[in-house]
Design a binder for these strands. Structure first.
Length: 564
RNA sequence: UGUCCGAUGGUGUAAUCGGCAACACAGCAGAUUUUGAUUCUGUCGUUCCAGGUUCGAGUCCUGGUCGGACAACCA
């Protein structure tokens, strides 16, 4: 109970958008409730950067008793597809947000937006231009040099009306004409130099089919959609800042509901690329196995990897909202993933890189079932039986023939504990002709059953293990970061971010897992003790379980031994 | 010699509108531990620069410096 008070106290600092909203509510600027929207373009899968925006828009609506629409910005049929629409809906839902019936499409408003365009033409604020894209580009000027007027800028209203209608009717080929706003060719803001409002694209649209062959540009669709939906706070990323004067200009000329645009800094993360174009390139170039490859920063990739929605939401909360450029350490995301998984996953034993151990003084053909705690920090998760026998597998890393300093795992003459089982001591090493260790021969102390010795002697190390005859073979997919450099885009001359990919970002291993794990279903999460968090991949079959490594456990020993 | 935006520890984000610069991650050190995990404790370290206003400036003013965005018929 004091917990909630503490939370409130901590949470009374507002980000700049919350500040604006509270000011707007206080001043009476908002008549009903605040209305936000999450406006993805269905031309790719959502990534962790979108998750930030989703948490922001839906979070703001929730906090201030408003609503958040899901609106697809589908004004470019050439690059958009229903596959993306479906994945986006799934991802937003999975993240834990609900848009109710408020699922909209910019294409829902194409008729209305067309009328808006006609109005601007009638008001002498828009004209049909016959210049090619290249000509428009050549006459736009530069930030310091004003652009030149289009030779078609002074067409009569009737002529413009007629031409625009014929554009709509499909009388002209792609690119032959555009509708342009008559704003200011000398504006220092390039966005205001007679921007294109409509272009001709004889393309099939995922929602409107072949009804249209002209489509509005982002600037003449987004703000209009916002206005139609009564969006009070239209929140987008920084690169749209220079579009805001145009956003406001259209709304003013049209005299429609005044939505306001606010911008925040997009998310960047170390060792990650975030642009849709680059993610598409990874997918299309087969550098990864699809959009939901567990190495991808996509929401679907992270879900498949084993990240939880709660962890992602906590991450989004923690990184905050501001206007300055930022690069978040990916370790922060991993922290929230571990934090959540630590609470919810059962602990099981799995040996990824096995070496055989034979307990020479343990009876042959004997099996004992020992009690293992599923989560020592949470008794409510119960216990399970773990089979123990004369032959076991342990992790090769857990044995050193010549132990280095501070190594307190198994070594000749050294006693360690097998978790939930017995103390064992190594007496002998059996090697093959190449000198590689084939088996480690040990003796156990029958008095130490359960992992405690009655004489009170201590051991420094506790190892995980799997009984060899009872072990189930499974596939472990060990993922590491996709890129080797902190900023993958920072590539050498003539190279691209693809050249910065980590060749070892996926390592596939066969592993031995304890029998209890056979019951896991796709998506279920588990901690492999002393190894990491894993979840069951959808590639699993009735015969073979496939585990994705979500994230390793923090490993201090790696740090200590790695320093040398 | 354009317009707009930004600048607080290694990384992010705060500082209730001028009043002791804090929180998280990362780092380091220690305690506990049947996971070298978790947990707990401690610790390191911050206001871009120069002026000005003020009893008092991260916050206000002036001038710099640095960084980013903008010149698709993409969004």
């Amino acid at each position: 109970m004091s917990n909630t008070i503490e939370k409130d106290e901590v949470k009374n600092s507002l980000n700049f958008l919350e500040q604006i909203i509270e000011d707007d509510i206080k001043s009476g600027k908002i008549s009903k409730h605040i209305q936000t929207r999450f406006p993805p373009e269905p031309n790719g899968y959502l990534h962790i950067g979108h998750a930030k925006s989703i948490c922001l828009n839906f979070g703001l609506a929730k906090k201030y008793n408003g609503k958040c629409n899901l609106r697809f910005d589908d004004t470019n049929p050439v690059t958009e597809d229903v596959e993306y629409v479906d994945s986006i809906k799934e991802d937003v839902r999975w993240l834990g947000f609900d848009w109710g019936n408020n699922e909209f499409y910019a294409s829902d408003y194409f008729d209305k937006i067309y009328e808006f365009a006609v109005k601007l033409i009638k008001d002498g604020k828009a004209y049909v231009c016959d210049m090619t894209a290249e000509e428009v580009s050549n006459t736009r000027g530069t930030p310091t040099i004003p652009g030149q007027f289009s030779p078609f800028r002074n067409r009569t209203i009737d002529e413009n009306l007629n031409l625009f209608e014929r554009m709509k009717n499909g009388e002209f080929p792609d690119g032959a004409k555009t509708l342009r706003a008559k704003v200011d060719m000398a504006s220092p803001n390039m966005q205001l130099r007679d921007p294109v409002m409509y272009r001709i694209k004889h393309a099939h649209h995922h929602k409107t089919g072949n009804k249209w062959c002209i489509y509005p540009m982002y600037d003449f669709a987004h703000g209009q959609s916002d206005s139609i939906e009564g969006i009070t706070h239209s929140i987008c990323t920084l690169e749209f800042e220079v579009h805001r004067p145009l956003y406001d200009w259209y709304i003013k000329q049209l005299d429609i509901f005044p939505s306001h645009q606010y911008e925040f800094a997009r998310l960047n993360m170390t060792y990650t690329v975030m642009s849709k174009r680059k993610l598409l390139e990874l997918v299309k170039g087969n550098h990864v196995n699809g959009w939901d490859d567990p190495r991808m920063p996509t929401i679907s990739g992270m879900r498949r990897r084993g990240y939880t929605a709660e962890a992602i939401r906590n991450f989004a909360d923690r990184i905050g909202i501001a206007k300055r450029e930022n690069v978040i350490d990916i370790a922060l995301l991993e922290f929230f993933v571990r934090e959540h998984l630590n609470k919810i996953t059962p602990r099981m034993m799995t040996v990824i890189n096995p070496v055989k151990v034979v307990i020479t003084n343990y009876p042959e053909n004997q099996t004992e079932y020992l009690d293992g705690k599923n989560n020592p920090d949470d008794e409510s998760m119960g216990t399970r039986k773990v089979p123990f026998s004369r032959e076991l597998y342990i992790e090769a890393d857990d044995f050193m023939e010549i132990p280095e300093k501070k190594f307190f795992r198994l070594a000749p003459g050294n006693e360690v504990r097998l978790r939930y089982a017995y103390f064992i001591k190594c007496n002998e090493i059996v090697k093959d002709e190449n000198g590689t260790i084939k088996e480690i021969r040990c003796t156990y102390d029958p008095e130490s059953k359960g992992g405690k010795s009655p004489d009170g002697r201590k051991v420094q190390g506790t190892l995980h293990w799997v009984s060899a005859p009872h072990a189930i073979t499974a596939e472990a997919r060990l993922y590491d970061r996709l890129f080797m450099s902190e900023n993958p885009e920072d590539a050498e001359e003539g190279k691209s971010f693809v050249d910065n990919m980590n060749p070892n970002s996926l390592e596939i291993r066969n592993c031995y897992v304890e029998p209890e794990l056979a019951n896991l279903k796709v998506g279920e999460k588990v901690q492999f003790e002393r190894v990491g968090y894993f979840n069951v991949d959808k590639d699993s079959t009735d015969k073979t379980l496939v585990f994705n490594r979500t994230v390793t456990l923090k490993d201090n020993w790696a740090k200590i031994s790695g320093k040398k």
